[in-house]
Computed example of a mutant assay.
Amino acid sequence: MTPDERRAIEADVTRLIHAYTWANDDADWHACAALYTEDALFRRPSGGEPVRGRAAILAGFLARPPRAQRHAITNVLVDVVDENTVRARSVIVLYMGEVTSDDGLPVQDAKSPLIGTFTDLVVRTDEGWRFAERVGALDFRP
């Protein structure tokens, strides 16, 4: 693999991580789930049992109660294993609030912000780069 190919993979996977973040903040759960492989494993940073499979991940997203949210993803580090496999880590900062009935700005939740990490296994598929594993963890208690 050439240095340019490696950099292109790093850029593509960084873009995947950011696309996921924007879809999540837009509550576009179908777009979020589409960024996983069919048999992916996902664990929310807030804990709970891991969820396996794109359909189950989508169902989990759809079951979420509405909330205002904004994720900031930082310190993205992409390690290319080979031309089809990548490991990545990133820091997540999550601001949350309740959706208002008057379309005004939400009031920030007292538990905000939450700070944690994502550890990802990303693979190249026919659909492009997708999360095979996305494991979140909190770094501080709220």
Rank of each mutant, 00 (worst) to 15 (best):
T74G: 10
T74H: 08
Y20S: 11
T2Q: 02
R134V: 02
V122Y: 04
D79S: 04
A68P: 10
A72S: 12
D79E: 14
N84Q: 15
G53C: 02
W29C: 07
V51C: 03
T21Q: 12
R54H: 04
E83D: 14
A137R: 15
H18C: 12
R141T: 13
V99T: 15
E5I: 12
D25I: 05
A27K: 09
P65H: 02
A55L: 08
H30F: 00
Q108V: 15
A40K: 07
H18R: 15
D139R: 10
F42N: 14
A33K: 12
W129F: 00
R7L: 14
E38R: 09
K111M: 07
P113F: 03
I17R: 09
A110T: 13
E38Y: 03
D4R: 13
V91I: 11
G116W: 01
D109I: 05
H30A: 10
W129M: 03
T125I: 05
P65T: 05
A68T: 08
A72Y: 10
H18M: 15
Q69N: 08
E49N: 08
H30Q: 14
D102E: 09
L114D: 06
I17W: 06
A33V: 09
P142G: 13
V107G: 08
L121H: 12
S90Y: 08
L58T: 07
P65Q: 06
V86L: 05
D28P: 02
V135Y: 08
D4W: 05
H71L: 09
I17Y: 07
N75Y: 02
E127C: 10
Q69T: 10
R43E: 13
Q69Y: 00
R64H: 05
V122S: 07
E83G: 11
A72R: 13
G116D: 01
E5T: 15
A33P: 13
A88Q: 03
R44F: 12
A59N: 06
D12M: 00
W29P: 08
P65L: 01
A88C: 03
D102V: 04
R67C: 07
A40D: 10
A59I: 06
F118I: 08
V123Q: 04
L41E: 14
